[in-house]
């Protein structure tokens, strides 16, 4: 557990008198390359795991039966990618943690997923806006990983990018249908885009030392998203708000509830196998 290095820098800590004083300096040594790689893989794994959990919440609640099947498919793809990535992360860490140890026995502050995926499902439009942004990020990400020097990541990327391409098609189609459907669906889809729009920013924050620098994905992301929104007769929101923190383990209030549900049974039976 000591492998996690807080990267938020020195923080101001409130004192009893209400004034603030500088927090004691955390002086982490430059992270080991393996630790850095572990954190990177864990971030992608947690994105996929939390996305799968949210999509699985739709099961039996879809707007039509075919959509129930499609959302389950996408959830299964995300879960499959999460398992491969978590397993690899556990190996990189070298502390004997397998996919279940990482999924079920970490608290929210140790999760490294982006905020986008943990947001509640909202209505179907919000879910599709979230999926559009996630897939528009994952397609170029996995494509880049498929060509990277890390063999394991390359293999995972090669498999996952095909799945993500389908997720992107599916979300794009729905965003167009809803945006250019009825007055009500247009209103809901625009509201969903407005709500979710600020969140992908966190995913595209530059990190030149990562196996794939997220900044290099921005051009692809922007062009896909803007063409879908245009076709869908939707407007790009204007905001300078850029919520972030997920990659450093500082989440929204929603994640802890999501994990409470995900982990409840596993944690109630320590050491049991299933």
């Amino acid at each position: 557990m000591t492998a996690y290095v807080e990267q938020t820098g020195p923080r101001a800590v409130p004192t009893a008198s209400g004034t603030t004083s500088a927090a004691p300096e955390l002086t982490p040594a430059a992270p080991e390359p393996v630790t850095k790689r572990f954190e990177f893989v864990l971030g992608l794994a947690d994105d996929a795991l939390v996305a799968a959990q949210r999509l699985a919440e739709w099961c039996t609640r879809g707007p039509e039966m075919e959509e129930d099947i499609a959302l389950s498919n996408i959830a299964l793809d995300q879960l499959g990618a999460a398992r491969l990535l978590l397993t690899y992360a556990g190996e990189l860490e070298g502390a004997g943690r397998d996919e279940d140890a990482l999924a079920y026995r970490r608290d929210d502050r140790e999760f490294r997923n982006c905020l986008l995926v943990e947001l509640p499902n909202g209505d179907f439009a919000v879910t599709m806006a979230k999926l559009l942004f996630l897939a528009a990020y994952q397609v170029p990400l996995y494509t880049a990983l498929a060509g990277c020097g890390d063999e394991r990541l390359a293999a995972i990327g090669a498999k996952a990018r095909k799945e993500s391409a389908y997720h992107l098609d599916h979300a794009s189609l729905w965003v167009r249908r809803l945006g250019d459907g009825t007055d009500e669906s247009h209103r809901r889809m625009q509201a969903a885009v407005d709500e979710v729009w600020p969140y992908p920013h966190e995913l595209l924050t530059p990190d030149p030392t990562a196996p794939v620098d997220p900044a290099t994905l921005r051009a692809d992301f922007d062009s896909v998203v803007s063409s879908v929104l245009t076709e869908a007769t939707l407007t790009v929101p204007e905001t300078s708000w850029t919520p972030a923190g997920g990659r450093n383990g500082v989440h929204t209030e929603h994640l802890s509830y999501l994990l409470a549900e995900l982990q409840v049974l596993h944690r109630a039976h320590p050491g049991a196998s299933w």
């Binding site: 707007p63 249908r177 459907g181 009500e184 669906s185 809901r188």
Partner: peptide
């Protein structure tokens, strides 16, 4: 709750 989605499609 899915009715508006089906009408939009």
């Amino acid at each position: 709750e899915g009715a508006w989605v089906r009408s939009a499609a």
